[in-house]
Design a binder for these strands. Structure first.
Lengths: 337, 337
DNA sequence: TTGAAAGCGCTAACAG
DNA sequence: CTGTTAGCGCTTTCAA
């Protein structure tokens, strides 16, 4: 059970450690015969090279880091699958870190990455992130970082996003076209670029439809289920009745359904609802929920591909470039069609 | 931007590398004064020790590996949160790997872990896993491994599970008590211990209620959405009408709802439905779904705690022990109450 | 309390 | 094609 090392293999085979190393990594400068001998022993003894020693020697780890706010979330879970699919293909491992929307955690994680434990990073910023020093700190050490979905505007790098503005615009238009006069916009209080884009799309649609754009119809939650729920309920009960809702976050669709049920508001009769969401269950809700579905898997794949490509070159340069993969509006019965 | 090393710090401070190293790890054998000097420079230069070099030197990495079949799954996503919460607390990082239910992938991942890149492993086996050689291979190298939820019976180690047998038993009893005469059991074709336990619970309940236990009522799917769906639909259409369903996997609740809708079967009027599920949306489905909710977060926490505890000791011995954290039957309107 | 020296286990020139 | 010789950057005796 005692650690098996290359040195031991070398001695056993009467070869140098260097030769064994090269044979194992299938270097061209080793004869087939020796490779065979080496591999046979490797097989027999079930030898696996020490990961830390190789990484140290090679000065890279064949590992990428992924930073996301949350994993109990269809979007991010699906994005991980996308990332994984191409990482695996390229022989990379994936370290996943969760910030739980905390800026402090985000900073700590990036700091840890400065230790060189990952070759590159894929990141979706937390809701609290308003400064980019920690990100620059990492990139200054020569570690490439790509944003996906939730980007931080102040940093120049490749960003894989979806068309948040247009999606919100289209969704709002849809509501207006189908009779909504008073449309709520729900989001988590923040300066997250994607939220702003969605909000702006909503606003533009309202303006085009000659509807009032007012802060009263823009609800910012703070991720506290109870108070968030009360805030929403209060709004829905108010005198001038809301007849449309656009939720900019998947999770916010739950309190909507709950509040409507409790207040005996029918969907879509009293209120039409659309939510940004990747929930598999959207079509089985009561009523089935009209969603803006993001191409989560594709976004993950694309982000990972571009990172891999950069890592493949010795001197990579990440373009300041936005790659937009569009979302789709999936009409279901929570709105009129 | 060129890599900053301890050696450089040492030279700058006119100290030895050894002293700097000890100062950074806050060793007691270093004077406060030197620690202060060192830390000041570390701060100023934004120095972060190389992760691979430290791990190599220390012969441990402060990293644990988590192997799960899938992350787009409420149970596993929540379990990750549980694991993360305690790993973070103890200063460990978490490497997450997905098998996508493939035994080959599972084996490859465990092999990779033999490289010593993780200090310990938390694992839920794939649906295909029928042999444990790869697991023994890892444990033989002295790397502790703990199972959670989906365990492999042939291996002696700590296992964190829930009461699958009793849960299925209770659920089936509930259906029977509320008038079901023909109850279907749905699962993915496998030898997974949790599935067997659930199936056995179901069978026991049927026997106690003098109902027929027949393979005709036990449907094994193969994870192909289309054919799975057709199989289910065919069964529901059959002459002798099914009036109760117990789904042993969250994902299987979707085709049930879909098939019932298409066949104009009302839930719970025609068919009562219960599913093992941790879906947040269960209560907003049409009708709200009665679920057996597993304590995912707790299971993750417990598994991680025990692993951390083992890693804390130099000579750890993982008890062959099953720790059972019970699930809860949450009654909603897809069944009668 | 500090430092010299010997690794950790593997990789990478560079000879031969 | 194989081996020698230096490292990679940090940790850890052990002596001073």
């Amino acid at each position: 059970m005692n650690k098996l090392t290359m040195k031991m293999l070398a001695k056993e085979l009467r070869l140098s450690v260097a030769t064994v190393s090269k044979a194992i990594t299938d270097s061209h400068e080793i004869s087939n015969k020796t490779k065979l001998r080496v591999n046979e022993l490797v097989q027999k003894l079930n030898y696996v090279p020490n990961h830390y020693a190789s990484s140290l020697g090679r000065r890279n780890s064949k590992t990428i880091g992924v930073i996301i706010p949350e994993v109990v979330d269809s979007f991010f879970a699906q994005a991980i699958n996308g990332i994984e699919s191409i990482a695996q293909e390229k022989g990379y491992s994936v370290l996943i870190y969760l910030t739980h929307e905390s800026f402090e955690k985000e900073r700590t994680i990036l700091k840890d990455f400065e230790s060189g434990r990952v070759d590159g990073v894929l990141m979706s910023v937390s809701r609290e992130t308003t400064k980019g020093d920690h990100i620059n700190g990492l990139m200054d050490k020569g570690i490439p970082l790509i944003f996906f979905d939730r980007v931080f505007d102040g940093i120049e790098t490749t960003k894989i996003i979806t068309n948040d503005f247009e999606s919100a615009y289209m969704a709002t238009k849809h509501l207006a076209k189908h009779g909504c006069k008073k449309i709520l916009f729900l989001s988590f209080s923040n300066i997250l670029s994607i939220s702003c884009n969605r909000l702006n799309g909503y606003k533009k649609a309202l303006l085009e439809c000659n509807m009032e754009v007012t802060d009263k119809n823009i609800l910012n939650f703070n991720n506290d289920p109870k108070s968030d729920y009360l805030l929403l309920k209060k709004k829905l009960k108010s005198a001038k009745r809301v007849d449309g809702i656009l939720a900019s976050v998947e999770k916010l669709s739950f309190p909507i359904y709950q509040a409507c049920e409790e207040l005996k508001l029918t969907i879509p009769g009293d209120v039409q609802v659309i939510s940004f969401s990747n929930l598999d269950t959207a079509s089985f809700l009561n009523p089935p929920l009209t969603t803006i579905a993001q191409p989560a898997f594709e976004i993950g794949r694309t982000a990972a591909s571009i990172l891999m490509k950069a890592l493949g070159r010795k001197a990579f340069e990440l373009q300041k470039e936005d790659i937009v993969i569009p979302s789709t509006l999936v009409l279901r019965r929570s709105t009129y069609i």
